[in-house]
Amino acid sequence: MWTEKYRPRTLDEIVNQEEIVSRLKSFVKTKNVPHCIFAGPPGTGKTTAALCLAHDLYGENYREYIMELNASDERGINVVRETVKTFARTKPMGEVTFKILILDEADNMTEDAQQALRRTMERYSETARFILIANYSGKIIEPIQSRCAPFRFTYLPREEVIERIRYICERENVKILDDGIEAILEISEGDLRKTVNILQTAASLGKPIDDDVVYSVVGRANPYDVREMMLMALNGDFIAARSKLKELTQKYGLSGIDIIRQIHNEVFKLNVPDKWKVKLADIAGEVDYRLIQGATDEVQLSAMLAKLVEAGYEIKRGL
């Protein structure tokens, strides 16, 4: 897949996030890395930066010195107590005296696990350094934050994304039109992973990529748009919105928590009065909490949709 094929291998290959890269390079030079937090929106190069750092530090066989854990998949306290500890406690062979543990989506770790992690980080800092990757550093508990060097990743500038698109198209021998590029930029919103995924999907149709091609593949790829479901509800069609919801959970296997978090992401992008955005965020928060407590996904999410119906109705009446 192109996301991997064109993922930079070394820090030198990373053309953007210059400030971050130069700090990371200085770590390589001194052969010392502090615990780090890489925070920032999706698709801005956090994981890539961590992998490149490891590559430059350890050389081609860097995989032997690192461990990559995804906290969303393995977020319990037991993982920290067992897997992480086992990895962290032994010293690696070679020039560099520590290993690196990359903890992706660390903001999805439970608080208990984070507390356990804090101790582990301290105790084994001789033999292991941690890179925590998160969308929001705010979800990482304070004691961990204070032990880490913070790095803030930001969306890539437009020009650099365009450059990347052109570079890939050239290498892959794909013809892309200006309006095709524009369409990709608009949909991917600065997320480079999404950009490249859309690009490859569009290229798979085997014809020059214009905006029509882009919109059609994106439409086909996202039949389960959460946003669409929300708009149905706002327009007053609760029954259609609920059917959409069923489709999301049953056919596409999305969990209730996935959906409510996507709903929350969309709330502030909706074309509704600010007062309602806040109200809806509040409701989303309550639903999220209930789902974590183990309530029934569909029932709780439907109640949220009914609130959207109510919101749409009131907004129409100018309330």
């Binding site: 897949m1 996301t3 991997e4 999706p42 994981t47 992998l51 990559e68 995804n70 906290a71 969303s72 998949d73 992706d104 989506e105 999805n108 992973r193 999404k194 995924n197 859309i198 490859q200 999907t201 798979s204 149709l205 085997g206 593949v217 086909r220 790829a221 996202n222 389960y224 596409y252 296997g253 999305l254 969990s255 996935d258």
Partner: peptide, 26 residues
């Protein structure tokens, strides 16, 4: 997820939909 450095749920959400289209067309 393993190959793309993603959690399973993100893989379902962010990669699988595009794979589907690719698998259907190329």
């Amino acid at each position: 997820g393993r190959k793309c450095h993603l959690s399973s749920s993100r893989a379902v959400r962010e990669v699988l939909p595009y794979l589907r289209v690719i698998f259907q067309s190329n």
